[in-house]
Each structure stands twice: as C-alpha cells, then as structure tokens.
Design a protein around this nucleic acid. Structure first.
Lengths: 211, 211
DNA sequence: CGTCCTATGACATGAACATGCTCTTCTCAA
DNA sequence: TTGAGAAGAGCATGTTCATGTCATAGGACG
C-alpha cells in the first residue's frame, strides 16, 4: 500500500513541486494538496492520509495552530512541519501541538521522502539543526517522564488507532495486517495492561501518556 | 583531521568492537576507551576528543550522572549516549544532563558512525525510537486549554466510567439507573462528540481534557 | 402555555468485540 | 543451536455494543 501524503502549503510552486515529487515516487501518493489549513481541515479526513506535510506560514490560520486542530481530530496521523522557520518558538509550539516531525524546506527531496516514511512508521523526523535545538529546548524544561509500559511499538500504534475510534477491521487495514493479527495484538495489550475492553485500554493508555 | 572518539563502556567485547569500528574507518580515530566513567573523567580531557560515546549501565557512576560531569568539564565535547535503555527516565535525564545524542546499541555500525559525525557537527543524533519518545515528552507539557464540550454532568460522569473500563451494565449500576438509560446517554454523547464507539469517545474525551 | 432539553425507561436486531484455542515465521539471546 | 518471545494468521463461540424506534416526566424559557 502506498504512503498517502497530504500537503498544506500556500506557495503554489512549492506545493506542486512536492506533489510531483510524491506522486512521482514509487510507494508514495499525494492524497491531497491545499493552500490553507482551513481548506485542509475540511478535506483531509476524507482523504485518509497517512502523513500530513504542514507549512507554518499560511494565509489565515498559522500552521503551528493548525497542528493542534489536526492532531485533535486525527491523532493517529503524523504531522510533519515543513517550513523555512527554525526559531525555538515555532519549533516548540509545533511539537507541543502534536507535530511529530519538523523538516526544513531546504531539505533535499530524498531526505523529505525519508522523513515521510519515518513519520509514518512512528518516528520523529527532524532536520539536523532542528534536532539540535529540540535537545537544547529539552534542557530548559521538565516534562513528566512516563513510566515504562512494556508495550511493543506495534501495540502502541494499534492503541493509538483504537483511541481514534477505529474498529478492529479498520485498524487492521490501516496497519496492513489481517483482523486476526489485530485480535492477537489486542489480546497481549489487554494482558499487559490488565484490562478487558477497548475503552479501558484507551483510557489507561491516555492517562499513562503512552499514546 | 580525524574525528577523535572517546568510548566509555564496561563490556570489553562491545568496547573493543566499537574501537575497531572507529579505528578501522577512514576519518575516525579512537582517542581512548575506558571501562568506567571515573577512569574516563581522569583521562578524556588529555585525550582531546571530539565526541564521547557514553554507556549508561556502568560499574560505579551511572552514565546518566557522568554526562553531567563530562558536560560541565568539557562543554564543547558532544556526548552521545550509547545504550540499550530506551525508557523516558534515562533519555530525559541524559539529555538534561548535557548529552546531545542518544543512540541505541542495536544501531548498525554505519549509522553509529553517522551519529558521531552528526554530533561533532553540532547535531543531535538519535535513534528513531528515541526521537519519537523525545517528541512525545514534549507533548506532555502542552498547556491544555479546555474548550467547552456541551456535555451534561451526567454524560461526563458516564464517560469517566467508560474510560475506567466499565460496561454499560456496570456503569448503570454505578449510576443507579437502568442499562437503557445508559444507552440513551451514550447515544447523546456520541452525537455531541461525533463518534460512534466507546473507545473513540474515551479517546477524544481524554485528549480534550473533559475527563 | 406550549415546547425545547435533560433524564429516564423499554425492546429489537445486526455488528463488533473478548477470548478460548492452534499454527508458522523470525529474531535474538543464552 | 536451541529456545523464548514477538509478530503474524486463522477459527469458533458467547457477550457486548450501536442504533433504530417509542414513551413519560420535570425544568427552563420566551
């Protein structure tokens, strides 16, 4: 299954260039490209995207704010900020608002594709400069460390999809496995978390900061 | 000029393997390899290293604590944690203590060399899993502004019970109403929240800070 | 004084879930 | 190199859920 990428970018030439890069690469497909966050918010859900590329400087709502709305509505869809800005404020806000990656527009095409793949597989793609700043920002803050949960990455991803409201069948399609495999993962999640229902697992996972 | 790498790692076989990897690669040179942080602290300065590879599980002082001492004494020398641990606590402590990278021991040799180069050039090399965790830690410090949700107190209470894993029947008993009433409340919760399942409602409610 | 909203209760039915088994493949550490 | 653990896949069975439709009673509001 192709990786479906949605793009929100106001500069038409950049937008089309990225779209062509994505549609022109095996294994990738552009599921939609919009000029503003507002337009994307109305359409990106229907587009069933795996990853969202989100510009920051947009007409209307800023990308940093839009990230929060997209993340609230589709928490399982990784958001990769795609911008020229590399100031701490925007990086910090974006990541706090739910973005999972942050790549600069000067990133070469292949690296951008790598970042999309990394984001889809649950990673956190960042341009080197950004990664450095993130680590530096880290030293200035004190987030609460989550306790170890013993869940595998697959199980965490599945939990995320369940929290979004997916059925077993829908989650299986997203994860590209059969429903039986999903059942088994759920089974081990329940064992590890000591729960016996989807909603209990989702509740516990969110409160524990696992997802 | 070669990139001079110092290693602190208690496992002799790993230590020697890394030393050979580094010394066997053009452009890299091992400037020293020690078994404990204490030994390293006495020698690494003289060794004039560009990058320090620091294990966490060490006899004597832990790598996470040692990072603070190394960073205080040689602030310009990037420290890359090199470990099997990927729990939030150790990641968090290491980065706060001055480490600028965090790579897992399962990292393939070429990637490890890449990480060293990236660290030397001011970057923040991190294994994909680690980068993901770092970004997730960021999200925990988001100041959540609770938007109005339109749910009645009864509905919120019911949502709380569902999030704890109660079934309709169990929730009905807790609320001292019949299961049919619970069904009807759930129905209006779903309408207001635009969801169609318990887990979706619980997921959305927790992320929105309703419960 | 109607009427909108909330809370309450009921019945029915098809879909989704929870959990009991068995099985293969792969990786990694002992 | 063997064995444990994780991921993946399948099947069966009983339970719970999601949603349709219908109904009564008490506040709130203009």
């Amino acid at each position: 299954m192709d990786t479906r990428v949605a793009i929100i970018e106001d500069d038409a030439s950049i937008r089309e260039a990225v779209r062509q890069l994505i549609d022109g690469t095996r294994g990738f497909r552009c599921s939609g490209a919009w000029r503003t966050a507002e337009e994307g918010l109305r359409s990106v859900g229907a587009a069933q995207s795996d990853v969202l590329l989100l510009d920051i400087h947009l007409p209307g709502m800023h990308g940093t704010d839009a990230a929060a709305l997209f993340h609230a509505q589709w928490p399982a869809m990784p958001i990769v900020m795609f911008t020229v800005f590399e100031d701490d404020e925007r990086i910090f806000t974006s990541l706090c608002n739910g973005a999972s990656g942050y790549v600069l527009k000067k990133t070469p095409p292949q690296k951008l594709l790598d970042a999309i793949v990394e984001a889809r597989s649950g990673g956190a793609p960042m341009s080197p400069d950004i990664a450095r700043r993130v680590v530096q920002l880290f030293r200035t803050i004190r987030p609460a460390a989550a306790p170890p949960h013993g869940l595998t990455p697959t199980e965490v991803r599945l939990l995320g999809l369940l929290a979004e409201g997916h059925s077993y069948q829908a989650a299986a399609e997203r994860m590209e496995v059969t429903i039986n495999t999903v059942r088994n993962h759920i089974r081990s999640i329940y064992e590890k978390m000591h729960v016996h229902s989807k909603s209990a697992a989702v509740g516990k996972a969110l409160r524990a900061g696992i997802i």
